[in-house]
């Protein structure tokens, strides 16, 4: 199981990346952390002409807080996210989610931007970005544009990223006072991709819930915000009867595909169970 032949270029700056992308188009692949691309290459599931290694562009790694927003460089590793005191303070949802991502050696290499670009429907970061209203910064030769996370994820492994673009940064607004968050997922083994999971946040004040966002992973081709379900809790508060009704509503909002071990019915059921648990956590 050895990778097919390809050429390799180590980019020294974004301009080089853009130039190579322009020249090679779809035949080039961006190598960031490599934790998804390298297995695909080793298994010969992917055979690009050229790998553009952006892993040395460390100016695009790291976490910064400015103007009420957290800026996460695309090349920030999962491990660095877990270790960031700023994130623990301002976006603890990410710190909670990181523990579900693979294993230490993978987290040392895999990157935030790489995970978003990959857009695995069961991955943690896409759902977190949607729930946190993240803006994803895409750069190309012609400039930079920002896409809301909700619009960025378009389908199964499909994103708004154009072949001539790279993700440079993700900008996330720091939630105001009174917001709570929770992240839950179910995986057969620690670090496996989730069967199904949920990233949640809401403003809680006494028994009143507002701005509730429930975003599911592993429950569709892309992260799904369950808008009606969320709205229902906002209107009715969290109670056993509201939960029952919400679980019904949720079934209509999710569209999971069966995986090797779990049918659609199982995934829907588990999503409903997680909904109850995540709401209990938020409301607690």
């Amino acid at each position: 199981m050895k990778a097919p032949p390809f050429a390799y270029a180590r980019a020294r700056n974004l301009a080089e990346v853009f130039e190579l992308l322009e020249r090679h188009g779809d035949n080039a692949k961006i190598l960031a952390g490599g934790q998804s691309l390298m297995p695909a290459l080793n298994m010969r599931l992917s055979s690009p002409e050229l790998l553009i290694d952006i892993s040395r562009l460390q100016e695009h790694a790291g976490v910064q807080v400015k103007d009420g927003h957290v800026h996460i460089g695309a090349l920030t590793t999962h491990a660095a996210i877990g270790e960031s005191a700023d994130l623990r303070k301002h976006l603890p949802l990410l710190a909670d989610a990181v523990e579900h991502i693979a294993h230490p050696a993978i987290r040392n290499c895999g990157t935030f931007g790489g995970s978003l670009a990959m857009a695995d429907p069961a991955a943690e970061w896409p759902a977190c970005c949607v729930v946190l209203d993240a803006q994803i910064m895409l750069a190309s030769k012609s400039g930079t544009r920002r896409v809301a996370a909700q619009d960025f994820f378009q389908g199964l492994y499909a994103t708004a990223l154009q072949p001539n673009e790279v993700i440079t940064e993700v900008v996330i607004p720091i939630p105001g006072a009174g917001y709570r968050h929770a992240f839950l997922e179910l995986a057969r083994r620690r670090g496996d991709y989730a069967i199904v999971g949920v990233a949640a946040m809401a403003k809680i004040s006494g028994t009143s819930i507002s701005d509730l966002r429930l975003v599911y992973l592993g429950a569709s081709e892309k992260p799904v915000p369950a808008l009606e379900t969320s709205q229902l809790f906002v209107l009715k508060g969290f109670s056993e009867s509201a939960l029952k009704e919400a679980q019904q509503t949720l079934a209509g909002e999710l569209d999971p595909a069966a995986d090797l071990y779990s049918s659609v019915a199982t995934k829907l059921h588990l999503a409903q169970v997680l909904t109850a648990r995540v709401m209990k956590q938020l409301a607690a």
Partner: peptide, 13 residues
């Protein structure tokens, strides 16, 4: 004994 099989036995799916 997958979660699915156990849920099936419990009549939950």
């Amino acid at each position: 004994f997958t979660p699915e099989r156990i849920l099936g036995a419990l009549g939950k799916i």
